[in-house]
Amino acid sequence: MTVQPGGDVPRKSSGPQALLRRWGPLAAIVGLMVLVFAMGWQRYLSFEVIGSNYDALKAFIADHLVLALLIYVAIYVIVVALSLPGGLVMTVAGGLLFGWLLGSVATVVGATIGATLIFLIAKSSLGEALAAKAGPWLEKLRAGFKENAVSYLLFLRLVPIFPFWLVNLAPALLGVPLGTYVIATIVGIIPGTVAFSVAGAGLGSVLEAQSASHAACLAAHPAGGEAACPYQIDTSALVTPQLLAAFVLLGVVALIPVAYKKWSKRNA
């Protein structure tokens, strides 16, 4: 901060340090995203990788539960903060490896931390610039969103048609306060997290059967290897039309306070 001659009003510095503080975290996130996709590390976030290492993962968790939970939360934070494709896989895996209750808690913690990190980075890097250059229509949109931030955020979190990374960024650009964002994120992701954690908790027998079938195939076709015996898990049953409809209904319920407020104003 610098002080203008003849006045007391501080002005934000625009020097190299200020620019680094503002754009450095965003540049780091983008750089890490490029690195992950260039190395292909996102491919490890798959049911096939988890299934083929299921026994080893369960043994490690049995011996080092706390450490395993910390690693899981850390990976989830990275997945969310870097907007990697794999949130659903991680959530289901949490229920599979830790049980639905412990897996749900760990998932909510990791997802909330990761979402908050990207929110803060986007808010400091892009949100302030957008607010400074916002025209009347955008300022009106920001004001309306902030007025009903909890309801709108719950709707965006609950309805699964909106990508998680988009729901993390939009509130930062629309001026939502940090506390409101964190509370709405925690509440909004709980239903989906619990649902998919419960589904994951029931996949253990499926993975064991698939692992046995895969091992038998490899024994029968030693020359073919993985090409002849691909490890495949059908997870299409996890996301059913009924489950999606339930999330949409929850999202509609979240918008009831907004609709009532608008109706009250119109009929006041």
Rank of each mutant, 00 (worst) to 15 (best):
H64A: 03
G99W: 07
P136N: 09
A111T: 10
L138R: 13
A115P: 15
L141P: 06
L97D: 08
F98C: 15
G99L: 09
T112W: 06
F119P: 05
H64T: 09
A62E: 02
L82P: 10
I113F: 01
K133M: 00
Y76L: 01
L67E: 02
L141V: 15
T116G: 00
T112P: 06
Y76W: 13
V79D: 02
F119L: 03
I78C: 02
I75N: 04
S83N: 10
G135M: 09
A131S: 11
V73M: 00
T107L: 02
G110C: 09
L65C: 00
Y72N: 01
P85H: 08
A81V: 14
L96M: 12
A122M: 13
G103Y: 14
L96V: 13
V66K: 01
L96I: 07
S104W: 14
L101K: 12
L126Y: 10
A111Q: 12
K133L: 06
L67F: 06
I78V: 15
L97A: 10
I71Y: 13
G86H: 12
V79R: 05
M90E: 10
V77T: 12
G95Q: 05
V105D: 03
S83E: 08
I75D: 00
L117V: 10
I78N: 01
W137G: 04
F119Y: 12
H64N: 15
L101C: 06
T107P: 14
T112C: 08
A122K: 12
L138E: 01
A131E: 13
G135F: 10
V73L: 00
A134V: 15
V80I: 15
L97Y: 10
G86A: 08
S124F: 04
V89A: 04
T91Y: 04
L69K: 12
Y72P: 03
W137T: 11
I121M: 04
T107N: 14
L102A: 15
I75S: 03
G114Y: 11
V105K: 12
G86F: 08
I75E: 01
T107E: 05
A106Y: 11
V73C: 00
V73G: 00
V105I: 11
I78T: 12
L102G: 11
T116W: 02
V92T: 09
W100G: 13
G95W: 03
S104G: 12
G87T: 05
W100L: 04
A74N: 08
W137Y: 05
L97H: 07
S83D: 13
G114I: 05
L67D: 06
K123Q: 10
I71K: 10
I75W: 02
L88T: 14
L120I: 04
A81F: 05
L120T: 07
